[in-house]
């Protein structure tokens, strides 16, 4: 069976890359938050349980396929029910499922607990960029817009693609390491989703509503994510870049933010857009501002 062979190779290599530093090819990216770690382990657990059942069930099936064939002179038996085995293979799976649900429940409750934040940041999805608003904690008042930084030429194949093709932005989010960050999400036009795999965070940004989630990165570094909800033409082109830095570096970044010109400009631009949007909403036409309509309409 080439297939199960490949499956085995895949699983073996994913287990091997458990602690690999490089971005994984076969499994989740290396987790840098407690939650992402739990998710990683949950997935491995699920994979192993499913694999064991799979091998068990198809072991039996293929044994039968090879041995109980007519060409090998097999004569068909005639049984067609057996209450005992039927009860067993109903009850045992239930027990296995309970075993899976238990750790998952714990993780869910932890993920959903957004209390006790050190810093609160609001992220707003726009077609097709992210706006960030530091609401509370160190850095309060910082606002900027974060756009894709990959040049058009790379996308259209006129230039060599860079290492972080499509995963780089002009103004990354900066947060201090080891601090609990509460993230509020909303959107201005259509639904977007803020996703950074290494944090185990994916949360839809829904226009007109605020949703929250949280993360606490344990390791400094640059972590990259993408918008994960189809949001129109440039859905593939609104990445997320988070720089997790030391407390000192963070303070320095905050101090440096004040006079930064482009951010303020960008903010003004966003403000104008929000205004136009509210007008549109007044006509009960949220999300139909002209610029976002597809061409030809």
């Amino acid at each position: 069976m080439s297939l199960s062979g490949r499956l085995a190779v895949a699983v073996a290599s994913s287990l091997a890359s458990f602690s690999a530093a490089a971005q994984s090819r076969y499994n989740f990216q290396e987790p840098v938050t407690e939650i992402a770690g739990q998710i990683y382990d949950l997935h491995i657990l699920m994979l192993i349980i499913c694999l064991v059942i799979f091998i068990g069930v198809f072991g039996v099936m293929f044994w039968s396929v090879f041995h109980h064939r007519k060409s090998r002179g097999a004569v068909a038996a005639n049984f067609h029910e057996n209450t005992t085995v039927e009860i067993v293979w109903t009850v045992v799976p239930v027990l296995i499922l309970v075993g899976m649900a238990w750790p998952a429940t714990r993780t869910i409750l932890e993920m959903k607990d957004t209390s006790g934040a050190d810093i609160t940041i609001k992220a707003t999805g726009y077609q097709w960029k992210w706006g960030y608003d530091y609401l509370q904690g160190e850095g309060e008042g910082i606002r900027f817009v974060s756009n894709l930084a990959t040049p058009r030429d790379q996308i259209e194949g006129r230039a060599e693609k860079g290492e972080h093709y499509l995963l780089e932005v002009d103004n990354p989010v900066v947060v201090p390491v080891g601090k609990r960050i509460r993230l509020l999400l909303t959107a201005n036009d259509v639904i977007h989703a803020w996703w950074v795999p290494a944090f185990g965070v994916k949360q839809d940004a829904i226009p007109g509503f605020i949703r929250d989630t949280w993360f606490q990165a344990d390791k400094e570094g640059v972590y990259r994510g993408v918008c994960a909800e189809l949001c129109g033409r440039d859905h593939a082109y609104m990445p997320i870049e988070v720089h997790v830095v030391s407390a000192d570096a963070y303070s320095a970044w905050v101090a440096q933010q004040g006079p930064r010109q482009p951010a303020v400009e960008a903010e003004a631009e966003t403000e104008a857009e929000t205004e136009a949007e509210t007008e549109a909403e007044a006509d009960a036409e949220v999300g139909t501002s002209d610029e976002s309509k597809p061409a030809g309409v």
Partner: peptide, 28 residues
């Protein structure tokens, strides 16, 4: 939901829960 918590505080300030409602649109 729209009339409570973060939704009210950050997006629809002053919107109160009632039925009938035309929603939190300030220009309604």
């Amino acid at each position: 939901w729209l009339a409570s918590g973060d939704n009210e505080a950050l997006l629809w300030e002053g919107f109160t829960q009632a039925w009938p409602s035309a929603g939190p649109n300030p220009h309604a």
